[in-house]
Nucleic acid binder design. Structure first.
Lengths: 250, 250
DNA sequence: CGAGACGTTGAACCTATTCAACACTGGTGG
DNA sequence: CCACCAGTGTTGAATAGGTTCAACGTCTCG
């Protein structure tokens, strides 16, 4: 019945090995939470410290365990942040959108990265040495406060995740994860709120501490109930209210 | 066999409704990670902003959901930080030792606390309005960097917890939790490394996303293997190496 | 001394995983 | 251009790890 969905609503405009124009760089930097409110001059100085690099989908930006000496910022595209368990299974910590930072904030703090970063779409990534960034923070104390606020939010988010892993059954965890992804990466579309990133069952399993099979089962059920629409590597939220009700109000 | 353990090695020197002397306050503040390296004069100014309060074991310092407007620091005693799930079960996020802070770093960020804090032992707690603390950070930028570093560590720790919840079986999670507690709150004793805080099976269940029954079973097994010694409300690590081996090297 | 909290142990049950087989899709190379 | 094939998704059945329910023992405190 509600089976025939279109091929893949997620647009993957694959350009050349991604890079961004100077204007884009400055625009991105100025829109970054912590760089907002910086004088144009200071911003240009900061900009000069950043290096840019392009990545193709699936390409690895850094690997857990390698020496952590850079701070990265997503200028264009989406980036997966993942941890690796000894058993071989992965944990997908987050999917970062343009404007978000990752990597090592401070030098020497963790000597090595404890997560890996991988481009999901063609991406342009800016990066700076952690030491250099530390100097920037020294010179612009207001930036440190902004960064503090962001870290605080991430800590909250991580704690909420612990709460969910501890107390919610898979079905709810998946519903919740879909809603979060929708809020962050959603794009209005005829099918509903399309999660605008290639997203496999396994990705969702890695976000919910589950397995691709279980995710598939739950998603089939959601689809039958008209809550979502989904196909190969994509998901759209059709009935957000019902999904929200399922996770239980908070 | 190895059943006869002593009553309760955990000392709970219950004084009057706890308070601390002026010298202790200054000493505590000066030893706080972020206040380290502050001029004595600045430290006294900061000290003046703090208010002190005493708590009895089990007494609640603040509750999740109430307006978040203060930052707290443990001066003396131990404090439980916990989240509450809709299902009624609790998550024990951490047990804080003297010198650690909790509560609200920044005003308005989360309008309300999203965790609760409760004294585990008789405790003396210093606190300051978040707004006031924000001013302190403004005036002493180096403190913001320190705080940033600490938040970073906590974020890492939370992420590691997500990893463990996602990939380790209960037995390992419990072993790991015991080791962490031992490292943080351990006191050398004849029985081994005593975790110097009243700690029930339920507490451990709340730290490992499990149940008191399961914790009891696993702990019995650990005790039979000579890994730990334990009784009512207390645990000591007897063979740290074996316990470490069990969790799997990292 | 009694009562309530804490801890232990057993057995039934249930959720989600695991293993396995099969179907669909899209991209690649012949 | 078509056929093939690897990656992805679906579905079923068996299994296991942990929870739940329940009963009982034990300690501590008032």
């Amino acid at each position: 019945m509600t089976k025939a969905r279109r091929k893949s609503p997620v647009q993957t405009i694959s350009t050349e090995p991604d890079f961004c124009s100077i204007e884009l760089r400055l625009r991105i930097l100025s829109r970054l939470p912590f760089f907002a409110g910086l004088s144009p001059k200071a911003l240009e100085a900061v900009n000069a410290l950043f290096v840019e690099a392009g990545y193709q989908p699936g390409e690895v930006i850094y690997t857990a365990g390698s020496p952590a000496e850079r701070l990265f910022v997503v200028a264009e595209g989406k980036v997966k942040l993942l941890q690796h368990a000894a058993t071989g299974n992965n944990i997908l910590l987050d999917i970062l959108a343009p404007g978000e930072f990752f990597g090592s904030l401070a030098p020497l703090k963790p000597a090595t990265y404890l997560d890996s970063a991988q481009a999901v779409t063609p991406a342009c990534i800016l990066s700076i040495r952690s030491t250099a960034f530390q100097h920037v923070l020294d010179q612009h104390p207001e930036l440190a406060l902004k960064t503090l606020a962001i870290l605080g939010e991430r800590l909250q988010s991580a704690n909420q995740r612990v709460l969910h892993l501890s107390s919610l059954p898979v079905e709810r965890r998946i519903a919740c994860t879909l809603l979060k992804l929708g809020a962050k990466l959603g794009r209005r579309q005829e099918e509903g709120l399309l999660i605008d990133v290639p997203l496999s069952r396994e990705d969702l399993a890695d976000m919910t501490a589950s397995t691709p099979e279980t995710v598939s089962r739950v998603m089939s059920q959601f689809q039958a109930g008209g809550l979502i629409a989904s196909g190969r590597q994509w998901v759209a939220i059709v009935d957000q209210a019902k999904l929200q009700a399922l996770v239980g109000e908070e």
